[in-house]
Design a protein around this nucleic acid. Structure first.
Lengths: 145, 145, 145, 145
DNA sequence: TTTT
DNA sequence: TTTT
């Protein structure tokens, strides 16, 4: 458990679709989704406003995957902390291909659902959906949000 | 402009009060507020749920201070990136005192207002208030949120 | 174990003194030290190079405290990840005082010793001393650096 | 210049090769290299120590690219902060391919060369080579490391 | 002093 | 595919 180096990704963005959750034979849970981060800037040459959206493939393991499955949906804004991982696979023609994903593990990873508070009127309080868990050993009744 | 070391703070929390904005004689703008971050956990000994809220003093300079003044208010949820700075001052009795603050400078600092989207019903879209600027040289009309 | 908000500090700097390590009656270990982060910049008015060093009080719990005690010393360069915590105490005159520290807990916290490689000549490779542990449950023989 | 979302990568690792630096016709500078981050852990099933090295493609623009070209080399340990970007390209057969890179821009990006201090003997202090620049507008003589 |  |  000694590491050499830091491999950390921090994203705040919106989910492009509902998470896909799979329950493994060994009890593990895995969730997948993509989230978008956008930036816009004014092009100094043309004086036009330009825009770029980046999509990030996110894969979550363990308790946070369950939380994602239950509380995140298409359009949810989340804060997450994970690490970069590039996976090798073969396409139909047998060629090597690589896909880079942001992996959120129970240890060191974080997921929080943001927002949930009506920003203009506070008259209608809603159930808070901000959530976080950082550890596999959490008991289900530990998730009070 | 060469640095030795990294001094970085990342916070997501809610403002405890409206930002206090001051316009300096030299045109600089400074904004102050405090934000709360909370964590709760189950005490393994007593089996009780416990809770701790941490308050952080935030001071913002430049364009981001103006944005804070205009778009942040008490209760707003924000993402911010700044650095730790401990300031020495004298109390009434002349004794040295120290206060640690999170300073957000135009270069390297970030402020984004989160949320603004109704998390349950998407029927009534609201004006987006998520915002960021990272650079002093931004023209006012560059802030489109 | 649900949290509201993110409270994260990332520092890279050098220790100002050897860590002070205390072993508690309950078996817990706590280490303290300060680390310096410096930045220098050219003052645009005076055209002089200016310099500022910031000192951060760090407190470490658990296995990472032991690692700090054994492998960090005055002058060591470290990467660390912790959270801000402001502690209230009373001075001799009974007045409330506050001290802000960077707390590194076994869960979510990180400590890595940097360097160890001669940056000028690569002829004499040295044993790598970069290290990290993020979890209390680490067995002692798991720390191979 | 308003952004929606946070896209941030923090890496500490060693360069796999000397940086490749290209000077563009318009005066821009671009540097490329890969850096490795490693983690090891004990497999709980087999009780064996396992190891995984992740390689990250890094691309740097502007002044930091020049710094990388001059001061980084194969084996250098660096701290860097950038953002994820996935680039689409066509392979020889015309098929779409995607490559994810960590992009370090002058604004918001950071590069620091770590180490430079002999970790075992402190008798012979060496010139500090830790360095950082965060801004395009830096004059060459601003880089004192 | 926030938020749920 | 998100969000404003």
């Amino acid at each position: 458990m000694a590491n050499r180096g830091i491999n950390k990704v921090i994203l705040v963005g919106h989910l492009g679709q509902d998470p896909e959750v799979r329950y493994m034979q060994n009890g593990n849970v895995v969730a997948n989704f993509s989230i978008a981060t956008s930036e816009s800037w004014k092009d100094k040459q043309t004086n036009e406003t330009r825009d770029r959206t980046e999509w990030h493939r996110v894969i979550i393991f363990g308790k946070l995957a369950e939380i994602a499955g239950e509380y995140c949906k298409k359009g949810s804004q989340v804060y997450l902390e994970g690490q970069l991982q590039t996976r090798k696979w073969q396409d139909q023609s047998g060629q090597d291909r690589y896909t880079t994903e942001v992996v959120i593990n129970p240890i060191g990873g974080t997921l929080q659902i943001l927002g949930s508070r009506d920003s203009d009127s506070h008259q209608q309080p809603k159930p808070q959906t901000t959530a976080q868990a950082q550890h596999e050993e959490i008991e289900p009744d530990d998730i009070p949000f």
